[in-house]
Nucleic acid binder design. Structure first.
Lengths: 340, 340
DNA sequence: ATGAAAGCGCTAACAT
DNA sequence: ATGTTAGCGCTTTCAT
């Protein structure tokens, strides 16, 4: 069923039908509206979105564009962070009348082509660095929501959605210190972007408490597949030099916690472990992780809402930036130790 | 840059450019091909997919259509099963030149409209029952891959991708019995479809071993949010009547295992617990779960491959059905007990 | 080997 | 209040 067919059946023009469909009923007499609506219903008219997109130069597509990983090549979605975000984006987008297309690639040119080809109305970018974002923006001025990208968003029509990474880790570190810990290590697999920010927060809290942080207190995690840490033995041995190991994410915290327990250390009795994110790993692991909560639902929702704002009022081109707050979540993986 | 513009630049017709783009080069002289390809490259031609779709009556879209849950209303993607599947579908689809759109709804009519509106080339259906699938097929003959739907797929152009659920649980149960267990319970939150199949497998193994299964050996789990079981206390008390509790999924096994441990029972020393699926919960939990592995990657890959087959050779309309095999994975959550 | 022309279904500017 | 018309960018049939 096409608009034309409906028009013929009712005996009006396609324009009138189109107007009724789009609720521009002020231009149409109530009687015609009635007739057309009945026909639409009766013959089960369903719009052809390709045609609509072509004619209107829109797409109603929100692209969730992810940079594919080198390591876990196959599957980024396995990451609870991603899947939770994606789900929230989908729910929110569909509520706003948009459709969600997922696209992952490691090649920026491919991504540009994708955006242009589909004439993506707006996109959520996940896992990119500022430089890459800028490169995409060269060819594409469409609204963008950047998830956890540090240092960018100079362009119009772009909103960066980040987290109080620094502050969150700062609070968590303060908490750990308040539990009597003095020898504390920070564990991550790199020291850029969000990992860097979290580390800064860690250091800041340490310094303010008058605790020295030596370079070796930053312990580098070497990932190996999704379920293992390559240098877990090394981490185990180093653990004897600390009373607490603060990991950059719940994911690593879970791995470290299990790795230590499997090697005979008791958590938190012998050594405390903390995470960051508060995804379900934090709750499924035992002891449940003391961590920092970030509201992924909020992240997805904010992304889509900002996108819709930008898409629907093209005038309003200012570049906003949202930093979501975090919350300390105390569970069972940090021990309170007696002060000397 | 449109085809027309490229054509004008090179001084040929749009048809010729289109032919070159689609590699129908046999019809075009090498010299022209050369010139056109250079222009395509130089001016960075990118096709407009809406236009292409409209003209060709295709879409290159694979829709991943999920029925949204009543319970975890907000977010189906959080389920490791879904996210793993989705990732694999995306990787595979994009390799085959298709794009992935996700769509979730609880309303079948909405889903039908979605399919028609976007002219979806093929779809992966997740979380539906046979009846709903049939309803969709009434209006839409496009290729479909059904994930874990029991009892359907009578239509053409439809492939059902299932798992040896029964057999998998049968083997696992045999294994548990071989470890000396005699009082074994089966836990699930319902008794239909895949859950039912798994239960059948359980019962079969029990019967063959000469062990009686009473109705009360089927313990119903009452879910409560994503991180809890409403009747965990009840399950805890019942656990004293068994030496092993076999759960219908890793997810529930993880919850049960933690619930029991939190209440003071030792796993597996006091009670053994098993899962099904072998997703990462099985590995992150301690003791790591003895479970049945299903290869989600294979499921996603098979779905997309079957879809592509059906989409690309419209003649080949037979309805296939694939049942993927399972594999017993022994970890640490089942204890071997001395035989009397 | 190449091109002209029609048409996919819809929108929107412009009549009437 | 309603209709006419001209595209949107591409594919495809049919001439040449």
């Amino acid at each position: 069923m096409t608009i034309k067919e409906i028009a013929d059946i009712v005996g009006v023009s396609a324009t009138t039908v189109s107007n009724v469909i789009h609720g521009k009923a002020k231009e149409v007499s109530p009687a015609t509206v009635e007739k057309i609506q009945k026909a639409l219903e009766e013959y089960q008219y369903t719009p052809n979105i390709s045609a609509r997109n072509l004619a209107s130069n829109k797409s109603k597509i929100i692209g969730v564009i992810m940079k594919s990983h080198h390591e876990h090549e196959t599957n980024r979605f396995i990451d609870p962070f991603i899947s939770e975000l994606l789900g929230d984006i989908e729910v929110c987008a569909s509520r706003m009348g948009y459709y969600v297309m997922v696209y992952t690639s490691r090649n920026i040119q491919e991504i540009k082509n994708y955006i242009i080809s589909w004439n993506i109305d707006g996109m959520v970018m996940v896992g990119f660095v500022a430089e890459e974002i800028r490169s995409v923006q060269e060819v594409c001025a469409r609204p963008m929501a950047l998830i956890d990208v540090y240092g960018s968003c100079g362009e119009e029509n772009c909103v960066s959605i980040g987290l109080e990474d620094r502050n969150g880790m700062y609070s968590l570190t303060q908490y750990v210190i308040s539990c009597g810990h003095r020898k504390i290590a920070f564990l991550a697999d790199n020291d850029t972007n969000l990992d860097h920010e979290r580390r800064i927060g860690f250091r800041q809290a340490m310094e303010e408490a008058g605790l020295e942080t030596e370079p070796e207190d930053f312990i580098r995690i070497v990932p190996a597949g999704y379920y293992e840490i390559a240098n877990m033995d090394e981490i185990y041995h180093k653990s004897f030099g600390y009373t607490a190991m603060m990991c950059v994410s719940d994911y690593y915290a879970a791995l470290v916690l299990n790795g230590l327990k499997d090697r005979g250390r008791r958590v938190p009795e012998d050594i405390s472990v903390t995470g960051f994110d508060d995804n379900y790993l934090a709750r499924f692991v035992r002891p449940a992780l003391t961590t920092v909560r970030q509201d992924m639902g909020q992240k997805g929702k904010t992304a889509v809402e900002c996108l819709c704002d930008m898409m629907e009022k093209p005038g309003d081109k200012r570049c906003r930036s949202t930093v979501l707050s975090t919350k300390l979540v105390v569970r069972d993986s940090v021990r309170t130790i007696g002060l000397d």
